[in-house]
Amino acid sequence: MAEVNVLEAIRETLDEALSEDDRVFIIGEDVEAGGVFRATDGLAKRHPGRVKDSPLAESSIIGISIGAAHYGMRPIAEIQFADFIHAGFDQLCSEASRWSYRTKGEQYLPMVVRTPWGGGVHGGQHHSQSIEAYYTHMPGIKVVAPSFPADYRSLLKASIADPNPVLFLEHKRTYRLVKQDVANAPAETSIGRARITRRGADLTMFAYGLMLHECLAASEELAGEGIECTVVDLLSLQPLDVETVLEAARMTGKVLVVHEDTLTGGFGGEIAALIAEHAFEYLDAPIRRLAAPDIPAMPYHHAMEAFFMPDKQKIAAAARDLAAY
């Protein structure tokens, strides 16, 4: 049984992409030495000149990737922590996302921005953030947030091949934590497809990243109590697999949306709105969102961090409530 973790899946995929296409290169802080999470370990040596350390300047990492992609390269930018991408927001929002639109598709940007996101690693305010909602609000950029190694692999491959800017979110807590026997993993997926990971008649959970694993763990526990859950791994937030979202909501009539981003303006609101708009008649209970409280960012102390993040217990509790409605 060949088990790989998330980090290995990412590293192998990058290695393959560098081998297969000489337009592909990696740019980011510390990437030549392997990066702080070691996602690019060994790649600089195997692909001389194609793994490039950048100065510590996020706007330039993204802006230069835009230029290189425009020229015809296939840059894969790494932003060391999603928390520091904000300095590159302007380049992503004002430039990358509109490149195709403002030229009616004549100019376009095949580029990927990879970045580790999410909490649960004692990273405090600036090493734990969820940034997806800023970018799902930005037509022109694709936002991908896988949960399992095999999906990291197929979606990273798809992101590199995609002619659009893709923000590829890697949940840092899962890097080494989540392993999968990739030989027996579900078939390769593509950007824009969600997956129903578990089927149960009582309620439907929607999640991505670390929270997907917490939802699966909670469902396991709930099954012992006779509550059967459907769990949807969203995988791709923009474009979103609306069809699967609605189908999964209709299957049970009870919906729990989970994310570790703060509640207000979080991506869960979009899922809730879509279901309310298009599957209202199927609902047997109000849509429930479980998210982090509306405080600016994740606190450092482990007790406060745990308080901030949804987890298996909180999910199970919310699900029991919902099932009993």
Binding site: F25, G49, R50, S59, S60, I62, G63, I64, S65, I66, G67, A68, A69, H70, Y71, G72, M73, P75, D90, Q91, S94, E95, R98, W99, R102, T103, Q107
Partner: peptide, 25 residues
């Protein structure tokens, strides 16, 4: 000619990225 937005100075990085690609090729 690279597509240009209203946001001033962003294009200097695009130019740098094009030059990086050209140098690599």
């Amino acid at each position: 000619i690279v597509t240009q937005s209203s946001v001033v100075a962003t294009q200097l990085l695009h130019a740098t990225g094009i030059a990086l690609g050209a140098k690599m090729r």
